[in-house]
Design a protein around this nucleic acid. Structure first.
Length: 239
DNA sequence: GTCCACTTTGAGTCTTCCAT
DNA sequence: ATGGAAGACTCAAAGTGGAC
C-alpha cells in the first residue's frame, strides 16, 4: 500500500509520514513538496493507493490545488488536508471528488482513524463542520463530541435505494448500457429504465453520468447495497 | 461533397399491474 | 403500502441512402 503526501512544509511531510507509517497496514509513504513533483513521479509510472493533498501549497488558492490534482489524476483517491475547516470549503472539496477532508488541527488518532475509514471505502468529514451546521439549524448543543466518521451527504440518498436499484446502480457505475444491464440482471429493458429513473430521483441526477459521479463521489460500494452503506467504515472496500 | 429526410438505437418518463 | 416488472411513449443522437 502506497501513500503520497503533497505539502510544501517539510515538517508537516515528516510528521504525516511518521504517523501514517505507524498505521496497522504499514503503508509506504512518499512526500512531495509540490504538485509538479508529484506529477513528475506519476509521469514516471508511480501509482498511489491514497493521496493526501494540502490545499495551501504555493501557487494555488482555495481549492485550486485540488482542481489541479483532479485534472492530473482523475482516478487516484485523494484526501484534502488543510489548516481551514470552513464548511463550504469542505463540501466543495467533497463535490470535487475528495474522499475526505482532514483539518490540520486534528489529532494523531483522528488522522489515523480518518485514513482507515477512507481506505475502507468511507468518506471522512470533520465533525466540527457538522456541529456548525447543527447549531445554525437548531441552535441545539453540539452532540458530536468525538471525532467520528460522518456519513457523506449522498449516503442518505443511497440508503433510500432498494436492493434492485443498488444492483442496477452497480452496473451503471461499471459503465454498462441498459441493454447489458437488463441482460446481466435478466430484466426487460423497460424495467431497467424504471430503476434507473428511480436512481436519478434518489441521487438528484438528471442523467446516468451525473448518477455515476454521485455514486462515486458518495462512496457507493459495489456489491453492498443500502444495509451496508453508512459511516461505519466497516465492510469491504468499494471497487 | 453536401444537404436532407428517414430509420435505428439508446435513454428517459409516466403509468399500470402484480406480488408481498 | 411498497417494490418489482413491464408497456407505451417521447426525445436526441447517430447512421443510412438518395437527390443535387
Amino acid at each position: 500500500m502506497r501513500f503520497a503526501i503533497i505539502d510544501d512544509h517539510p515538517f508537516v511531510l515528516d510528521a504525516l509520514s511518521i504517523i501514517i507509517s505507524s498505521m496497522e497496514k504499514r503503508p509506504s509513504v512518499s512526500g512531495f513538496g509540490s504538485l509538479e513533483q508529484f506529477e513528475q513521479a506519476v509521469g514516471k509510472g508511480d501509482t498511489f493507493d491514497l493521496v493526501l493533498l494540502d490545499l495551501g501549497i504555493p501557487g494555488y488558492t482555495g481549492l485550486g490545488s485540488l482542481r489541479r490534482f483532479r485534472a492530473l489524476e482523475s482516478l487516484m483517491p485523494v484526501v484534502v488536508i488543510s489548516a481551514s475547516d470552513d464548511r463550504a470549503t469542505i463540501l466543495e472539496a467533497l463535490d470535487l471528488g475528495a474522499m475526505g477532508f482532514i483539518p490540520k488541527t486534528s489529532g494523531r488518532d483522528v488522522l489515523m482513524r480518518a485514513l482507515e475509514l477512507i481506505l475502507a471505502g468511507g468518506i471522512y468529514i470533520p465533525p466540527q463542520a457538522l456541529q456548525r451546521q447543527e447549531k445554525a439549524l437548531s441552535r441545539a448543543p453540539a452532540r458530536v463530541e468525538e471525532p467520528v466518521a460522518q456519513t457523506h451527504p449522498k449516503a442518505t440518498a443511497f440508503s433510500s435505494l432498494t436492493q434492485r436499484q443498488c444492483d442496477v446502480l452497480e452496473l451503471l457505475v461499471k459503465g454498462l448500457p441498459n441493454k447489458l444491464i437488463c441482460r446481466e440482471l435478466d430484466l426487460s429493458p423497460n424495467t431497467v429504465k424504471s430503476h434507473i429513473s428511480a436512481i436519478f430521483r434518489a441521487l438528484n441526477a438528471t442523467n446516468r453520468t451525473q448518477a455515476v459521479i454521485a455514486a462515486q463521489s458518495g462512496g457507493f460500494r459495489v456489491g453492498y447495497p443500502r444495509s451496508s452503506y453508512g459511516a461505519s467504515g466497516e465492510g469491504p472496500s468499494h471497487s
